[in-house]
Structure formats: structure tokens, C-alpha cells
Nucleic acid binder design. Structure first.
Lengths: 205, 205, 205, 205
DNA sequence: TATGAATGAGCCTTCATTCAT
DNA sequence: CATGAATGAAGGCTCATTCAT
């Protein structure tokens, strides 16, 4: 993956990184709309107002751009998740907090999420995406750990924990597809809805 | 959309359609692996053993091929769904039957399903995909109708039926992603798992 | 190095290869004039009368084209050289025959030779050119062997055989630069001139 | 050809010119390795440690840089050659001195020489290189004059003087290709080797 | 002096598709 | 029926160069 070379002097560097983020955000929006593959650099040129060369000054390559989008999505989410499970609380509370953070993140990065989902088949197959895959897996592991802890301490009892986790991942990931900025339900309400679904279904006898 | 011109004499026509289905199946597999956009006609040329001209003889165009894949996925599924809800039975039974048929269909057409999911953003936006969208919506309507009937007759009580339906769609659609031909759970078991999840969560008091 | 895929049926294959050679010859001429790097595929498009796609149908890539040019130059030359030294004759006769064959080859493939010389720095450095390098070295080895044999059997006595060989290579390679189709001296006369230069300078006492 | 604008105050000017020479030397090295055309300004940016703007401050343009390299090569060589033939001496002595100076120059400016040879086809064709061509021709004329004088005064007798000169040019120019800083033969030894080759071959009966 | 952001033309190549055979 | 030669627009990206700072 080609890397754009950022300036070294701090003042310029800050400016560079601000502009870079702007470009990434714009690109995420366009990718989400038209699809990553179907979006040409020409499209981004128009969306950003930069000429081809200027664009590459900030992004290195189209694939690098996709990488940044995935990273901006997963890295802070993973960090939040780790912070949540770091403090002491019942498994059910952790689950609810995780879901709320997750849905809020999706709402705030809807375009990122849609792009990530669309290009999933690439990310799961190509070696250069290993780090991204690892972040995704780490997050899912945290979720599974919480469910497992609930089972162990007797507060949850799932028919099949593995399937429950997969169902959860499915419903949450799918959410980016239909979530609207000012929709009927807030991200928190959706999170609670999913959480209740799981907790009721897995209510200990 | 360009249309390939099939022969009119019945014997030839049968042969033609058999070969055509073969091509569509192969294409679905390749698309599922590499992505529709990332797959070139050249790739299909290699995968099918046909030369460019021969390929076009059967498929008309790349987009037409995508259309066929979607249609092979949705049309029989919709038909089955209609058959299921046509006979008299409690809402919960209908739901279970629908899920079993659906999961079985996904298992049998995994590639089709993955392609459909991947290209969803195109299908949902472009006018030429209206008919496909309509099929998808009709199927989802059938599901919603069953849940609504359950609510009406008092056998189900969801916190939020709309959200429940979306959750269901999410988990089922996501399934194609991880379903393996000889996995731990059979399609029927998965269907039952999802069904129980919903029914427990929406158990009437 | 990408490879264009030739047809398999013999009749078509012959046609394909004829056209391919035509393209290579044209390209060699253009490269010789403008330089390999300075020549754009657009230039070749104009020179061959083929559109971009058609061009690639025959050549695979620009680098592959360069490879073909080098191969068309070196492979038959090496073959001729081997045939010459295979039959019994005095070293001086072999030398003269080699030079005549060599100069005739250069005259017949002036463009190829100029391209080869121009891109020498690439050919000598990059790993994908190993086979071409090997052919060049094999040819030079044959020359050195003849000079060494002359020294051994006492018919030649060079002040420094290594330097003499390098001088020979220099003068012959340089020839493509100034050789004109109907110049004052024929390739054979030039060959004899170089041969005499060496033989006189290395005349045994 | 764009021209960089040097400062006018003497002290600054000296500094400027020192740095400029440094840049030219570095560029010559990189060009010799990768080829003039294949070297990007970005490559030079990295090799010199200057940013794009700084580079242009010193060189004006990429072509101007090539011009400087050629000029640094040819101008002092031509001056030396003129000095040599200015003093009275037998033609054979002049030839030897010329070759020694020439080979020493090549050894000291190997990169310059390689670049000059590589880009020869450009230099010989484009009008803006007329002055460089003139220098090259002037140098070759000096060589030819010496050989002609040797023939006239009966101390040399070549089979074909024109061909002999071309052979000489070929062997010397080719030398840059294989000359190593601490090789088996010193530049002076190589010069003598070439000189002896010519003188023996052209020994008057 | 020197930086590095920015340009936009041009690079090589691939693409879906057509059509004479 | 099927081939594969051929198209030409468009793809992602790099290039030499300029200029505000």
C-alpha cells in the first residue's frame, strides 16, 4: 500500500492531517453512496474539489483510503469497547453499554460502516487487510466474552451462545443500512431494543 | 439491459437454457468470491471455459447476469413464502416455516445471496432494479404480516415490531456470510434458533 | 510480466503470431527513434494502427514488448554463433565469421539493437531480465573463447585479451549508432575492418 | 529551457554555485543508475534532501539538469583536448595523450558519461541540444585530425581511417559501462591499451 | 532560501462489449 | 454456436512543475 508522505514540521503536519481527515470523510460518503469499486478517483476529485495530484498527496492510493476508512471506524470502537469492559459491572450492563456505544458509533460513522460492510469480502480475503480483520475479531471477541461471562455467572442462559452472537452481529451490522439521521428511533433506543431482545431470549430460568 | 436472444425451437431452447443456467451459477460463484464489480468478463471467460462471444451469447450483458442471479434468488423464495402463508396455521408456525424455507434457500444459493447483499446499494438505487426491489419488499412484507398477525391475535407481543423485523432481516441476511456447507448447525437449526430468539423475546405475557 | 494469450487453433495462431511480429517490428522502430521510455503506448497505437486494446491483445505489456525485442535480437544471434564455432576451423576464421554474422545481424535488426543498447542499464539491473542477460553473456563468452583459443594455439597474441574483448564489444555495439542502410561500407566490410584491427594488433610475433 | 535564477552578490553566488554542483553531481549518479527518463524529480528530491521547490531553485528544470551534466562532461574534455593538440608533438604522442586525458575524464565522471550515452538519441535529434552536439563533434574532429596527420606524415597507415575512428569512439564510450573505480586496469592503462591497438593495427609498413 | 501543497496532463493498462468469421 | 480480434472509453496513478508562504 502506497503511503502519502506527511510533512514533518508540526504546524504543517496538523494542517495536513486535518485536510486528510476531511478527504477521508468525503470519500467515505461517496463510497457509501456509489460503492467503493464503482467510485472513480475522478468522482472523488469532484467531491473533494482537489485535483488528482492533490488528492494523492493526502491519500496515497485508493486502497489506502479504504484502509483509513476502516481504521477510523474500528479503532475508536475497539478502544471504547475495551474501556467499557475494563470497569467492574454485571455482564448485562456491559452488554447494554457496548451496544449503546456501538450503535452510537454506527450512527456517527454511517458512511464508514456501509463501506466496511460493502467491502467485507475483500477485507476478509486479502492479506493486506489482516490488521483490520484483527480489529474486527477483537471487538467480536469482547462481545462473546461478555455473553460467556453472563452464562458462567448464571445471569444469562442462551440456547446457543455462538448463534446468538452471530445473530447480534447480523442485526447490528445491518442497522447502518436503514438508520436515518433523524429516524423514529435513536441509536440508544435501537441498542436497548437489541439488548432486550437478547436478554429476554436468554433470560435465565 | 441487453438481452441475449435465445433460440425458438424447443429442443435447442432447452439446451440453451441449461447452458445458460450453468453460466449463471458459475458467475454467481465467482462474483461471490471476488465481488461483482471486481470480476471482469475475462474472469468469467476463464471460469466458464467460454470465449467472450460465447459468454455474451448466453447472458446479454454483465448487468443482465446480475439480474438473473437476483431473480433466481428471490423469485422461488417469494413463491415458497406465498405458499406457506396461503395455508391456515398459527402465526408462530408460519414464522417458523418461513424461516426454515428462507435459511434452506440461502444455504442452497449461498453465492447468489452474497452477490445480492454485496450489490444491494446498486439494487436499491438504480431504476432498472425496481422489479428486484419489489420482490425483496414483497417478501419482507409477508414476514411483517405474520408478526403483525401474531400481535393482533395476542400470541406475540413485541416491544417494537418494526425493530424486531429489521433485526430479523439483519441476522438472516448476515447468515450467508458465515454459513458453511457442513457447519455445526444445519440451516433448519439456524432457522429454529432465530425463530426461538424472536418468539421468546416477543412472548405474550 | 503479463503475457498476451495467443489463440490455440493452429490457423489462427499463425495469423496471431504474424501480426504480433509485425507489431514488435513497428515498436522496435519507434523505440529506436524516440527511446523506449519516451515512447508512449499512444505513440505505438498510432504507429501500428491498432487501438490500445488491440495492441495489448498482442503484446501483454510495454515491458513484455521490450523483452520480445531483446529476444528477437539475441536468440538467433546466439544460435548462429553456436553454429559457427561448432564446425572445425582456425580461431581467426571463427572470429571473422562471428563478426560477419554479428554485423549482418545488427544491420538487419538495427532498431532492435539500438533499443537493446539504450535500455541496457535496465536489463543489467532488474531481476526479470536475467534470461536476456544470460544470452548476452553467452554470446560474449563465445567470442572470448575464440580469442583464448587463438592465444593458446599461438596464432594470436594480445597485450591484454580481456581489454581486447571489451574494445571489440564496444566498437561493434557502437556500430548500430552510425550504420546506415546503404552506407559507404557494407556490414561485411565493417566486420572485416574490425577483424583486421584485432588480428593485426594481436599478430603473433 | 527554464533557467534557475542565481543570486548576483558574489558571496551568495559562490554558495549557490557550490550547492548547485552538488545537486548536479547527485543527479548524475541517480540518472546513471536508473536512467534519466526513469528518474522522477521525486527521486531527486529524496537523493538530494531538498524539497521540490529547493531543487528547482538550483536547476531550473529536469532538462536543464541533463544539459548541465553534458556540459560538465564535454566542456573541460574539449578544453583539455585543445590544449594537448596545441603544443607541438608527433601525431602518435598526441593520440596517446588524448586517450589518457579522455579515459581519465571518463573515470572521473563515470556517471556523467553514462547519462550522456543513455540520452544520446535525444541529444542527437532535438534542436535544443545543438551546442552539446557541437562540442561532441569538435572533440571527435580533433581525434580525426590527429589520425589524419599521422597518415599524412607517414607515421600511420590505416586500412580505413573513418572506420578506425568509429571503432575508437565505440570502444572508449563503451568503457564507462564496465569501468570500476578500483578495477584491474587504471584509466591510463586502458588508454594505452586502446592506443596500442590502433597504432599496431595502423603501423606504417 | 526553501518548503510542500497543488495542478492537470499524461502515463500504462483494463474494461465491457461487438462482430466478422 | 462459438471464436477471438478489435474497440475506445475509462481506470488508478505519476509526472514535471508552480507558487504562496
Amino acid at each position: 500500500m502506497a503511503t502519502a508522505t506527511p510533512p514533518t514540521r508540526p504546524a504543517l503536519r496538523a494542517r495536513y492531517e486535518r485536510k486528510q481527515q476531511e478527504v477521508v470523510a468525503t470519500a467515505a460518503r461517496v463510497f457509501a453512496e456509489r460503492g467503493y469499486q464503482a467510485t472513480s478517483m475522478q468522482d472523488l476529485t469532484e467531491a473533494t474539489g482537489l485535483a488528482a495530484g492533490g488528492l494523492y498527496h493526502y491519500i496515497g492510493s485508493k486502497e489506502r483510503l479504504l484502509f483509513r476508512i476502516c481504521d477510523e471506524l474500528l479503532e475508536p470502537l475497539l478502544e471504547q469497547a475495551r474501556a467499557i469492559v475494563a470497569h467492574d459491572a454485571p455482564a448485562a450492563d456491559h452488554l447494554r453499554e457496548l451496544l449503546r456505544a456501538w450503535l452510537a458509533h454506527i450512527a456517527a460513522h454511517r458512511a464508514h460502516m456501509l463501506v466496511f460492510a460493502q467491502e467485507r469480502h475483500v477485507i476478509e480475503r486479502e492479506p493486506q487487510w489482516r490488521d483490520v480483520r484483527r480489529q474486527r475479531k477483537a471487538f467480536e471477541q469482547i462481545l462473546d466474552d461478555v455473553l460467556a461471562r453472563g452464562e458462567r455467572d448464571g445471569t444469562m442462559a442462551f440456547a446457543d451462545r455462538g448463534l446468538t452472537l452471530l445473530a447480534l452481529l447480523g442485526m447490528v451490522n445491518h442497522t447502518a443500512t436503514w438508520l436515518k439521521p433523524r429516524g423514529r428511533l435513536s441509536p440508544a433506543q435501537i441498542a436497548d431494543g437489541y439488548c432486550d431482545l437478547l436478554l429476554k431470549a436468554g433470560a435465565a430460568a
